[in-house]
């Protein structure tokens, strides 16, 4: 069997998603039998960019001309482009402040006034620039989900989609509902499930690290939180932690 050629890389991000992949110790050896990591700078296991890839797994948001250049290169060279992680899909933590402060202010505060600022624009998802064939969400993503994707790609297809919110798994695991019973700011109803409700299972609200679920009823979630006495600012700040733009009037 021909080994699948993979590119794995990150744009503007923390490399956490790529580390998740590296942390799949149990599966990696067998995986390497099925794919060739032609380009994977983080793992120092390949630095070749000018080949045709079966799939490029790209972490991070796009925020610099260099990001963009790499992204275009990978798009053109890959059969499947995979948006890997919340930043790649929604902007993520990097884009959290897109709506409250300008890029310039942000850079100033990081690099100091007077310094020459690096070229950069507000971080945006991959799909703003290129077509994306598959997605694995999460900050960081679930090991199981990235493995499902890579294994399905190796088999010659994509994994089946699941599209239910965090609440579905949360309730079925018999967790206490923090939104209803403790009136906490839980984003579970509008956030894509698949994490086995990791946070609510330990008594912490869902902060929405996996981005919006399909047809999220955002307007109703907002209403639910306002009813529980949270201010609009606080709610928006929380909602935009992993995805800067939400349509607060959207019901389906």
């Amino acid at each position: 069997m021909r080994r699948m050629k993979l590119a794995i890389t990150g744009l503007t991000a923390c490399s956490g998603c790529q580390l998740t992949l590296l942390n799949c110790e149990d599966e990696l050896p067998e995986l390497l039998g099925h794919c060739e990591l032609v380009y994977f700078p983080l793992a120092e296991s390949g630095n070749v960019l000018d080949v045709q890839f079966d799939a490029a797994i790209v972490e991070g948001a796009v925020s610099t001309p260099k990001d963009l250049e790499l992204l275009f290169k990978l798009r053109n060279a890959s059969t499947h482009l995979v948006a890997y992680g919340t930043c790649a899909l929604f902007g993520g933590v990097a884009a959290m402040n897109n709506r409250v402060s300008t890029r310039r202010e942000l850079l100033r505060s990081v690099f100091g006034a007077g310094e020459k600022l690096p070229e950069s624009f507000p971080p945006v998802p991959l799909a703003n620039f290129v077509s994306v064939d598959a997605a694995v969400t999460g900050c960081p993503p679930e090991k199981q989900e990235i493995m499902e994707l890579v294994v399905a790609l190796a088999a010659g297809t994509l994994p089946p989609a699941r599209s239910y919110p965090v609440c579905t798994e949360c309730r079925s695991h018999e967790n206490l509902c923090l939104l209803l019973e403790k009136r906490e700011l839980c984003l579970g109803p509008v956030v894509q499930g698949g994490c086995n409700a990791r946070c609510p299972a330990t008594g912490i609200v869902c902060e929405g690290c996996r981005g919006p679920v399909r047809e999220a009823n955002v307007a109703q979630e907002l209403e639910l939180l306002l009813e529980r006495g949270f201010g609009r600012d606080e709610i928006e700040r929380r909602m935009s932690r992993f995805k800067p733009e939400w349509d607060y009037g959207k019901r389906s």
Partner: peptide
């Protein structure tokens, strides 16, 4: 107002519909 959270059927003693998915192994 329904947020499609799924709780109603997850918790219903007579809701039984299911999805079926298949995952390949290496």
């Amino acid at each position: 107002t329904c947020v499609s959270c799924g709780a109603c059927s997850v918790c219903c003693p007579t809701c039984y519909c299911f999805d079926v998915r298949e995952y390949p192994s290496l």
